[in-house]
Design a protein around this nucleic acid. Sequence first.
DNA 1: ACGCTTCCAGTTTTT
DNA 2: CTGGAAGCGT
Length: 739
Amino acid sequence: MDFITGQLNNKQKEAVLTGDGPVLVLAGAGSGKTRVLTSRVAHLVMEKGVYPSSILAITFTNKAAREIKGRVGKMMGGDMWFPWIGTFHSMCLKMLRMYPESLGYRKGFVIYDQDDQKILVKDCLKELDLDSKLFPPKMIIHQINRSKDELIDAEKFNKENASDYKLSIAGKVYELYQKRMLENNAMDFGDLIANAVKMLRENENIRMYFQNAFKHILIDEYQDTNTAQYELAYILSEKHGNIFVVGDDDQSIYGWRGANIRNILDFEKDYPGCMVIRLEQNYRSTTNILDAANDVIKNNLGRKGKTLWSDKGTGGKINYYRAATNSMEAYYIASRIQKGIEAGRDYEDYAVLYRVNAQSRSIEQALRDKKIPYRIYGGISFYQRKEIKDVLAYLKLIQNPNDNVQLKRVINEPKRGIGKTTLTRMEEYAIDTGSSIYEVAGDIRIYPNLSKSVEKVSVFVGIIEKLRKSAAEKSVADLYDDVILYSDILKQYKLDNTIISRSRIENIKELKSAIMTKAEEQYESFGEKLTLEVFLESVTLATDADEETEGTHVSIMTLHSAKGLEFPIVFISGMEEGVFPSFQSFSEGRLEEERRLCYVGITRAMEEVYLLNTMQRTLYGRTQSYPESQFLREISPALIEHKSGGGFGRRNVGQSTRDSFGGMRITKGGKPITIAGFTAVPGEAANVKTGQRVRHKKFGDGTVTNTEGSGGDKMIEVSFDIAGTKRLMASFAKLKIVD
DNA sequence: ACGCTTCCAGTTTTT
DNA sequence: CTGGAAGCGT
């Protein structure tokens, strides 16, 4: 059908129309890979007569899954039975939910995130009487996670590392950790994949069931797959052999997280007779930008090889600016943006990228001072906030009272006078008797040394028991109300009564909206009542609580977060040896991944790129000089235009770049604002005082009733005449002082 | 048991 | 400079 392939170039068409068998699509940045993937799904269904339900399309992020779902739905008219489209984690979860017993798990197992993981690892260290100084939880967690990515279980890990003292200890922790996970009926993110593979490997019936079910498997961002995900895809595609993967080896930037670039590099070896299609036409950037990106990436040895081109015209040169300090670098960025806005650009056209989050401070400062609205991407999401996680821990505990990790989180939240000593003793008894802490808590009277805590612990058990009853009888939303009521979790926050604690209360209340929305969805999509189990799982695998795009703004984020995005104008800050590439990457063969990151950064830009660095940078409270990044030198000088204005701000600058830094304030302090979903429109808010009349764009007029904190952290409470009382962050509030 | 102080380490983070 | 964790004093 024409409308599927009508808008595709020849290579893309080839990828969409290729018949059965393994296919590798090497899709360069901006070459339309999502379009190819979605078109192929539509093509399979509408022209090849493949049952939608026998198609499995796997992505890495919920966002990508949503996007593909949306596009495929549109192509197919929307009313067709959807193919199985989801993330690796969500599809593994789906499979595991069907046969949890095959792995010794029970129905309704929960998912542990990195927080839970950390608590459990620390527990295990304590139980094994290990010093967390000598064996940092971080390192242990890393070992465990990487092992799972590589499908190495505790037993195998111990066998392989028997000769290494530290690692053999880590292996002991790993072993205990897994034991406790099973007892708690919990899986971490790594388990979801590794256990799915284990389940398929060890159970012929289950394996055959899924192998038959999925006649076509499509995988997005294949360069990011780890060994476990590779194996999963391999097993699932074994029967029909229709595996279609799309990816770009040059954009593999998550090796440190377990991604195995060999998966894409060796695809042809692993799937003999496969088709390889290269998408090299870029629809995003000017040729100068692509040439620069190509110049950089060609220095990598381990790559498939690909040269992007476009017909977007040459475009301007790559801008290079060397500033004296990081604040000056930031001010340069801000003033370029300001100039652009004056010339008719939109804030949305700009992105500022950096290697480490710590760099964002000075950039934010400069943007705020120049009153440029910005938004930080990649902050802490709603579901990762402490107060939300606490409420969720109650809900998880209600579902499984034997989950020690959740219990420890909430037994003294709010403060109930149950302290470390009591908890430690209960834990010890739990281990000795092979029961859970909750079970010990229930029988607390019979244990010695705990008499002082009987009262307090019994109160807690009473609360949970009452809530379990509620859970059996009530909807999730009503259960939520009971949790708030019986646990009295708002107590401390109400007592503190600071602006911050009040916003925490609001967040907790917001969780109820999330529950009700989910309940509605569940009813509309499946005609089912929302169960606690379904709600909890939807929450753990949900990430970026959908960003409400309020107002126009500049985007600032790490280079990693920028993957998959595009902007007309991109600034890359900190092109310094030691910052980018980071000094940690100098050892071993990790430089190539940094270079790919650089490639990713440059290829985000459609029209203009600014590469920036400084002679002196203050990072982590230390001021240092860093040499110019080697990546800069890799770009052909002919492509680069050196912007003047470097030096220590004294030099005369050309008329076209007349960036006066005279009288520049370099304000100190000002914590970074990393709350996702906030749009900064700095105004006069930083200076308001209690009692002052102010005007807000959305809320109207009001009176300032309270202020708290200072600098970038300052919170303002305003009683609006119509909208009621609101708490705003001074640095973001769109406030005007009314005379 | 808990809050306050001091000390220390500090990339990148799709799930 | 920061945030988290361990240590100390009440």
